[in-house]
């Protein structure tokens, strides 16, 4: 069970993001199609970056019991794309929130 700790932490964090998104209509609850494309595109960009980092021997998977151990490639655990998608979603939410504050000032 402890192997799911990282995924669970990401899920809880993402859950909080969804609540904020829903309450203030920041990203997916405002422009679902755009947000999906943005997260997907950012994920591909990050994964390409990861692959370069892994193939040049810079990034190494850590020795930890907090991950499932499922590997998508050398040094690339299942959790990595989940985290990267989360980072992209977080960015959309923060940008959406600040953009929303800007609109309120303008009103």
């Amino acid at each position: 069970m402890i192997g799911f700790a990282y995924l669970a932490a990401l899920a809880v964090s993402a859950g909080g993001m969804v609540v904020l998104d829903w309450r203030y209509r920041l990203a997916f609850f405002r422009r679902p199609g755009f947000s999906a494309l943005a997260v997907l595109g950012m994920l591909v960009f990050f994964l390409a970056w990861d692959v370069v980092g892994i193939s040049t021997g810079i990034f190494l998977r850590g020795e930890t019991e907090f991950m499932t151990g499922v590997m998508l490639g050398p040094e690339l655990p299942l959790e990595e794309p989940v985290f990267l998608a989360f980072l992209a979603y977080l960015t959309l939410d923060v940008a959406g929130l600040l953009n929303r504050l800007g609109r309120r000032d303008a009103a």
């Binding site: 422009r31 755009f34 943005a38 950012m42 960009f45 990050f46 970056w49 980072l87 992209a88 977080l90 960015t91 959309l92 923060v94 940008a95 959406g96 953009n99």
Partner: peptide, 19 residues
């Protein structure tokens, strides 16, 4: 740099992107 890239790509798309 990962966070910088996320902000530098997604903010322009969110604030000034197409649509």
């Amino acid at each position: 740099t990962y966070s910088l890239a996320a902000a530098w790509i997604l903010v322009p798309l969110t604030v000034a992107g197409p649509g």
